[in-house]
Nucleic acid binder design. Structure first.
Lengths: 122, 122
DNA sequence: CGGTATCCACGGCGATACTG
DNA sequence: CAGTATCGCCGTGGATACCG
């Protein structure tokens, strides 16, 4: 972190790519839950609670595309689909949890800062 | 990470709050640059390179509101405004960098996964 | 059950012009 | 120089309905 340049054009693009995945509305939540073990579609939907069917599908497809989860279809009737974290997904969990832990530890400071700011501006 | 419940309604909301800040298009980039020391508005704009004036203002206001940066106005003509990371902002840098490092280390694996996925689906 | 298809509202974001 | 104001595009995400 020394050089005065810190060239964004390559590294930061990579970071942004990952962050736009991680930073979207539902990804972290889904990854968090899958971190406890494989789950089927309806199970995820029910557990998460506020997510629409469309967004859960979209989120899972994105995670699958990036190699974070696997999708296993059981050709039964009614159908059953399991989602599970890959190696890569498990590894992602580490920095995500670190950020999550930090967020939990400092959310109060942030909220206080907001209140102060909003009050000062009004 | 043992309990079978993992209650989202409080903790995960906090995490999402922080992540929606961190996950937006420019925040990480700005924080990254301010991590090297205080910078003035035009300096940030010039260095980052692709950001519009409006978005830089919006991003900085958001960071200021959350207590991550301070805004110092020098009442000169022409005016000059410095932005600097707060304690909180510095601390945020740690987990953000961890995620950034992970992203840089694994971006190749992710891109490969994407190519495989896109090819399989076509 | 686990999707896809369609429609639509909202907000993020950029471009441009103006101001103290 | 460091903003604010306004406009308009477009992607995200929700609601609803239908399908294998």
């Amino acid at each position: 972190m020394k050089p005065g340049h810190l060239h964004p054009t390559e590294d930061c693009r990579a970071v942004s790519e990952v962050l736009s995945r991680v930073g979207d509305k539902w990804t972290v939540l889904v990854v968090q839950y899958l971190g406890t073990g494989p789950m089927r579609f309806s199970e995820l939907k029910r557990t998460i609670g506020g997510i629409s069917q469309k967004m859960l599908t979209t989120t899972l497809r994105g995670l699958e595309r990036d190699g974070f989860v696997t999708r296993t279809v059981f050709p039964t009737i009614p159908p059953r689909v399991d989602y599970e974290l890959t190696e890569l997904g498990q590894e992602l969990l580490t920095p995500v949890r670190a950020l999550g832990d930090w967020a939990r530890s400092n959310i109060i400071r942030i909220r206080e800062a907001r209140e102060r700011f909003d009050e000062t501006v009004l």
